[in-house]
């Protein structure tokens, strides 16, 4: 992490993409899992939750970053919470205005964005130390990564749990829904499966790199099969 007083590292594309994949809040940092497990029983719910989180994340990080030199250390957490709560309240009203149906389906989880550790975590760890632009860009990346994870979960759960995607019937009407996928246990199972897959791919990539390095030093080609 860069210190606020030190010279800022330049804004690179990496700041934006880190949150989407390399430091994905759900799959890598395992932050904010409560909404991840609770509202991802359909793609639409996941998407709505993701967008709401992006909004709160970007706005609160922007404000925290803009005010970072005025907020005394002793009251910073209180201030961040007030800022976050403000934007969550705004989202709450806006979603009610957009669609009451959606609001009823997301239930208490909109209000619970306040306590989502991802948002406070980013405010404390990133926005309070980085410039306004960088904070906003990073928050956008993180928010998109969060949404991506939510949609990945929601997609699998809706597909298996209802045979639909975004409300469109994917399989024939004879499809037998896997009820468990819509229920909370389905959230845990699907999250576990995604983590398994992602970690497996990650591990393969690293071991391939190691092999290649070894091969390079020995002047050999990397073999494809390894155990």
């Amino acid at each position: 992490m860069t210190q606020a007083n030190k010279k800022e590292t330049p804004l690179t594309l990496d700041v934006f993409t880190a949150g989407i994949w390399k430091e994905n809040p759900v799959f890598v940092m395992m932050l904010g899992l409560c909404p991840v497990l609770a509202v991802t029983n359909s793609v639409l719910n996941s998407l709505a939750m993701g967008i709401a989180s992006i909004f709160v994340l970007v706005c609160s990080n922007a404000l925290v970053s803009a005010l970072r030199n005025f907020i005394p250390k002793q009251v910073r957490i209180t201030t961040y919470i007030i800022i976050i709560a403000t934007f969550v309240t705004l989202v709450d009203y806006i979603i009610q205005a957009v669609s009451l149906d959606l609001y009823n389906r997301l239930g208490a989880f909109i209000q619970l964005i306040v306590v989502n550790c991802l948002i406070l975590g980013r405010a404390e760890a990133y926005a309070s130390k980085n410039s306004f632009t960088k904070s906003v860009v990073s928050a956008l990346g993180m928010g998109l990564g969060f949404t991506l994870a939510l949609v990945m979960l929601g997609g699998v759960r809706e597909l298996l749990g209802a045979g639909q995607l975004l409300g469109y019937q994917v399989f024939s009407t004879q499809f037998e829904p896997w009820v468990v996928m819509i229920l909370p246990p389905g959230g845990f199972i699907v999250l576990g499966c995604w983590l398994l897959l992602i970690n497996y791919l990650e591990q393969r990539k690293t071991s391939k790199l190691i092999l290649r390095d070894k091969a390079a030093s020995h002047g050999q080609l990397p073999s494809e099969s390894f155990s």
Partner: peptide
């Protein structure tokens, strides 16, 4: 237990 939760009717 998994299929009990997934396919309660069958």
């Amino acid at each position: 237990a998994f299929v009990q939760a997934a396919f309660p009717v069958s």
